[in-house]
C-alpha cells in the first residue's frame, strides 16, 4: 500500500466513524426530544393552576388536581432527606476520613454500593415487612423511611468521593496549625467539598422524589390532603401510577400533567446540579 492510498484509507475510516458518531448522537437526542415533546403535548393541556391548588374532589371521572400528592411528596422527601442526608454524609465522612482500618470500611463501601443498586421494589417490600406490618398501617413515616434508605448510599458514596478530592494539603495545613481531626473535617474539608456534596444530595433527592415502587408498599396513597404521616400518605408518583392505570380519561389526563411536573422537577434539579458542580470544581482548583 502506498503512502497516499493509506492516507485516503484512514481518511475514509475516520470520516465514516465521525459520521456514525454524529448520527447516533443525533438519534439519541431525537428520542429524548420526542419523549419531552410527547409529554408536553399530553401534559401541558391538562396542566392548569387547578392542578397545583385543588384536590381530586368527589368526581372520580374528572379529578381536579393533585395538590395533596405534591404536598405529600414534598413532606415525605423532606422527612427522608432530614434523616438520610445527615446519615449519608456521616457515613461518607467515615469512609473518607476515618477508615484507617481495612475491613470495616471496605465492607461498608461494598454494602453501600450494593444498596445503591438494589431494585427499589425490594426496598418497598423491606419497608412493608419491617415498618408497615408492625405498625399495622401504611404510613407516610414508612414511606419516608424507605426513601431515606434509598438516599443514604447515594449521599454516602458521593460524599466519600468528593471528600477524597479535597487536597491532602488542606488537611495537613489545618493539622499543622494545631486543629484536631474533627475541627479539620468540620472547618476545612467539608466546607471545601460543600458544593459537590450538595450535588450528591440533590441527585439523591431527585432519585427519591421519583420513586414509586417503595411507596406502593409503604406509604400507599391517599385522596385527601393529609399532613399526618402516621396515616397512608399521598405522593406524586403513586398518584400518577394510580391515575395512569385508572379507568377514566380524566384521571389519565391528570396523570400526564403529573408526569410533566415530575420531569420539570428533575430538569430543575439537574440544572442546579450542573451549576453547583461547575462552581464546586472552580473552588477546588
Amino acid at each position: 500500500m502506498t503512502g497516499s492510498a493509506y492516507n485516503s484509507y484512514t481518511r475514509i475510516v475516520s470520516f465514516v466513524a465521525a459520521a456514525l458518531c454524529t448520527i447516533f448522537a443525533f438519534g439519541i437526542v431525537a428520542v429524548l426530544c420526542l419523549v419531552v415533546f410527547y409529554l408536553f403535548g399530553k401534559g401541558a393541556s391538562a396542566l392548569s393552576w387547578q392542578f397545583f391548588t385543588e384536590l381530586p374532589g368527589t368526581d372520580p371521572q374528572n379529578p381536579k388536581g393533585m395538590r395533596h400528592a405534591l404536598e405529600g411528596t414534598l413532606i415525605m422527601v423532606s422527612l427522608a432527606a432530614a434523616v438520610g442526608v445527615p446519615l449519608g454524609i456521616l457515613v461518607g465522612v467515615y469512609l473518607s476520613e476515618y477508615s484507617s482500618e481495612k475491613f470495616l470500611p471496605t465492607t461498608v463501601r461494598f454494602v453501600a454500593d450494593v444498596l445503591a443498586g438494589v431494585p427499589s421494589i425490594v426496598v418497598g417490600i423491606l419497608g412493608y415487612e419491617l415498618l408497615v406490618v408492625p405498625m399495622g398501617t401504611n404510613s407516610g413515616y414508612a414511606g419516608a423511611a424507605a426513601l431515606a434508605f434509598i438516599m443514604i448510599p447515594i449521599v454516602a458514596r458521593t460524599t466519600e468521593e468528593m471528600l477524597k478530592l479535597v487536597p491532602k494539603s488542606y488537611r495537613e495545613g489545618s493539622l499543622a496549625l494545631g486543629a484536631t481531626k474533627s475541627q479539620t473535617i468540620l472547618k476545612v474539608v467539608l466546607p471545601a467539598a460543600t458544593g459537590s456534596i450538595v450535588t450528591g444530595v440533590l441527585l439523591a433527592i431527585a432519585r427519591a422524589a421519583g420513586e414509586t415502587a417503595p411507596l406502593l408498599f409503604t406509604a400507599l396513597s391517599s385522596q385527601y390532603l393529609t399532613r399526618d404521616p402516621s396515616q397512608p400518605f399521598p405522593s406524586l408518583t403513586v398518584q400518577i401510577y394510580n391515575y395512569a392505570t385508572g379507568p377514566f380519561q380524566g384521571q389519565r389526563t391528570l396523570a400526564w400533567a403529573g408526569i410533566l411536573v415530575l420531569i420539570s422537577l428533575f430538569f430543575v434539579l439537574s440544572l442546579a446540579v450542573r451549576w453547583l458542580t461547575r462552581r464546586a470544581v472552580i473552588k477546588m482548583v
Binding site: 487536597p167 488542606y170 494545631g178 471545601a192 477546588m284
Partner: peptide, 18 residues
C-alpha cells in the same frame, strides 16, 4: 495538638484554605 499550636509550619506548595 498543643505541640502543633506552638510550632508553625509552611509547606512546599502554598496551601491556603478555600
Amino acid at each position: 495538638i498543643n505541640l502543633r499550636k506552638r510550632v508553625g509550619m509552611v509547606f512546599q506548595k502554598p496551601n491556603p484554605f478555600p
